[in-house]
């Protein structure tokens, strides 16, 4: 269940006055079970890249193989591909359409060939998985529920057909702090419970990427400029030259190092940073903490 991308290039509006190169010569592999963060400033080609993975943009140059499905084939089996890769777009709640929450979540399974009864069961499971009260919400209109609930329903709509890989484009955009935290916790619990195997998340928020991703792929002007573990990416590469901010934990750790204080850890999140401080301080003060 791996994704192999080789020499992927893509140009919008080829041979027109609006020609724009979006991706050039991108190659990388995503292995089973990884949590990959894709970062890059606006216009760096992140969206174009993930749309390729789902066959939403026709492959024109390079090679993509998803679990043995070759997208450069003349007629790749897109339905099979899309069932494997669940894709959640930005503001996914704007795509809800059915009369009831249940009907909307069933849409995916039915498209992928499930019988009505089976689809209903899959939908029920998915709605419960995203932490919603199934009986309470199933017959309500997706237009009348709260913003946070809408987004959960949209996530359920993707989870319902049991994809192995989940691709998320800015899953926390527009949510308030609690909503953001809940969404990220949901994503990480989906992975730890085995509901999805692999997660690919696009985000502008470096703190989110640092805390949740195991590996970071960075794009700049359509080129892959970095592919490394999250720790290496934030601590050893020049993140700021990509027009991206450093996560708080990394920024402060680096600043302290400049001033000669070594935390002897490479924290990526608030809890890791607090932990590093606790260690450092208890050493300094004879275990006062």
């Amino acid at each position: 269940m791996s994704i192999v991308i080789e020499n992927l290039s893509f140009t919008y509006g080829k041979k027109s006055p609006f020609e724009k190169k979006a991706l050039s010569d991108v190659s990388f592999t995503v292995n089973d079970g990884e949590f990959v963060g894709i970062v890059g400033s606006t216009g760096s080609g992140k969206s174009t890249l993930i749309q390729h993975l789902n066959g939403l943009i026709k492959l024109t140059s390079g090679k993509i193989t998803v679990d043995g499905i070759d997208l450069s084939a003349r007629k790749p089996d897109l339905q099979k591909l899309r069932k494997k890769i669940g894709m959640l777009f930005q503001y996914p709640e704007y795509q809800l359409f059915a009369e009831t929450v249940l009907a909307d979540v069933k849409f995916g399974p039915k498209n992928f060939g499930a019988k009505d009864e089976e689809a209903e069961k899959m939908a029920e499971e998915a709605i419960k998985m995203v932490g919603l009260d199934f009986e309470e919400i199933k017959d309500r209109s997706p237009i009348d529920i709260s913003g946070g609930q809408k987004r959960r329903v949209a996530v359920a709509g993707v989870l319902a057909y049991k994809p192995d890989i989940l691709i998320l484009d800015e899953p926390t955009a527009g949510l308030d702090p609690t909503g953001k935290r809940d969404m990220l916790d949901l994503i990480s619990s989906l992975r730890s419970s085995g509901a999805v195997k692999t997660v690919i998340m696009v985000s502008h928020n470096m703190d989110e990427i640092a805390e949740y991703a195991d590996r970071v792929i960075a794009l700049s002007n359509g080129r892959l400029v970095s592919d490394s573990s999250t720790e290496e990416f934030f601590y050893d590469s020049d993140v700021e030259s990509l027009n991206l901010a450093l996560p708080h934990a990394v920024y402060i750790t680096k600043k302290l190092a400049e001033k000669g204080i070594d935390l002897s850890a490479k924290p990526l999140s608030l809890s890791e940073f607090n932990e590093a401080l606790r260690r450092k301080l208890s050493l300094g003060e004879g275990g006062a903490l």
Binding site: T178, K180, R181, D207, H248, L270, F273
Partner: peptide, 8 residues
Amino acid sequence: ELPFPTAV
């Protein structure tokens, strides 16, 4: 949510 430095 407290800003990072405030939380620390």
